[in-house]
Simulated assay, not measured.
Amino acid sequence: MANVSTLTHGGLNLSARFREFVARIKQANARATEYSQTYSELQRLSDRELNDIGIRRCDIADIAREHAYCS
């Protein structure tokens, strides 16, 4: 007895899938840029300025990641 599986792509043709792929790449680049900008801006602050806003220097990468990828 033979089993046949049929996979469909929800009706998306090749050009639509390619456009979606390009859009995802653009979104990933935008998020990476946002992370880098946030990280750099926080790194430029002095320890006193960071303390005033309640951020430890060791938390900068986590804060930048959350800002860029979780919001």
Rank of each mutant, 00 (worst) to 15 (best):
N29C: 05
E20H: 08
V4Q: 13
S36Q: 09
Q37A: 13
A23G: 06
E20V: 07
R65S: 13
A68I: 01
S36N: 05
E34R: 15
L45F: 09
C58V: 14
E41L: 12
T6M: 13
A64E: 04
R44V: 01
T38W: 01
D52T: 08
T6F: 14
C58D: 15
M1V: 10
H9G: 11
E41F: 01
D59G: 05
N3W: 07
R17C: 06
D52G: 08
C58Y: 10
G11Q: 07
A2G: 06
H67G: 00
I25Y: 04
A23V: 01
Y69R: 09
I63K: 09
R31Y: 03
V22Q: 15
A32Y: 03
L45E: 06
R19N: 10
I53D: 11
A16S: 13
A28Y: 02
N29P: 00
V22I: 15
R24P: 00
A16R: 15
S40Y: 02
A68P: 05
G11W: 07
A2L: 10
Y39E: 07
R56G: 02
C58L: 09
H67T: 13
Q37T: 13
A68Q: 05
R17G: 08
N29I: 04
A68L: 04
N3I: 11
I53W: 10
Q27Y: 06
R56D: 08
S15V: 12
N51A: 15
G10A: 10
E41N: 15
T38Q: 10
